[in-house]
């Protein structure tokens, strides 16, 4: 299980005229949880959006299981088996929980097939199945956003800040759900909450100022206080 599912090679991404990513490279191994760390504005979200095709990189390459995917439209990348959970839990407020999930179907019967697994991870969604997404609490919306990425057969999940603004008890639920999900899929996780990332991830990459500066095994980073202070500490 050590083959590389996603390989990002020195991508440069611009948003408008701003050069946001100035050479980000990373590899995500099949079956692993890889954490993307760094301060606010380091380029973590833009990296996920570049992979997803929402902010296509101007140069560099992105390969999914060896096949180049940069330059393809986002819907095409999604169809190749990439699920995206954006920050701020972008659930569709006017659609019910059920409709939010159904929209993520790529084949007929996806939801029926995956429903039991999803509901076992997030029982709340079952309770509010016919409620509009906008009426859910923040934590429930986050669960819905993650659940949406589980409906279709995705090989890779890009998850952006799942713990942002949530109460510790909800964060715990999400951690345990992500752990169960990682048994069958590969996850690239952006997380500000270092404690949470440390619990989950096998490997890490640190971004600073739009560049990937360091990577390694999460177990090693936990003891490397110098690196943590340098790149992740407040200020």
């Amino acid at each position: 299980m050590s083959d590389v599912l996603l390989e990002v090679d020195t991508i440069h991404t611009f948003i408008g005229q701003f050069h946001i990513l100035e050479g980000v490279s990373l590899k995500v191994r099949t079956g692993s949880i890889t954490a993307l760390l760094g301060r606010n504005g380091a380029g973590k979200t833009t990296t996920l959006r570049s992979i997803m095709g929402l902010n296509p990189p101007r140069s560099g390459s992105i390969r999914l299981a060896g096949e180049p995917i940069n330059g393809r439209p986002a819907y095409n990348i999604a169809q190749l088996g990439v699920g995206y959970v954006p920050e701020h839990r972008a659930v569709f407020r006017d659609l019910t929980v059920e409709e939010n999930l159904r929209l993520a179907e790529r084949k007929r019967g996806d939801l029926a097939r995956r429903s039991d697994f999803i509901m076992s991870l997030f029982p709340d969604l079952k309770r509010f199945y016919r409620h509009p997404g906008g009426k859910l609490s923040g934590g429930q919306q986050q669960m819905l956003a993650i659940a949406r990425a589980l409906v279709a057969d995705n090989r890779l999940l890009l998850i952006d800040e799942p713990s942002e603004g949530l109460a510790p008890i909800i964060v715990e639920q999400i951690v345990s759900a992500l752990r169960q999900m990682s048994a069958e899929t590969t996850i690239l996780l952006v997380e500000q909450n270092f404690a949470m990332a440390a619990q989950l991830a096998d490997e890490y990459y640190i971004l600073d100022d739009g560049r990937s500066v360091q990577h390694g095994r999460m177990a090693d980073l936990v003891h490397d206080h110098a690196t943590i202070d340098k790149y992740l500490g407040a200020g």
Partner: peptide, 23 residues
């Protein structure tokens, strides 16, 4: 389903696209 996509797209067409739908 088309109606669902339209209602979702009114709010956030980028996210609809990220679900694999050719918006």
């Amino acid at each position: 389903r088309l109606g669902m996509i339209i209602r979702a797209g009114v709010q956030d067409s980028e996210m609809v696209q990220a679900l694999g739908i050719n918006v």
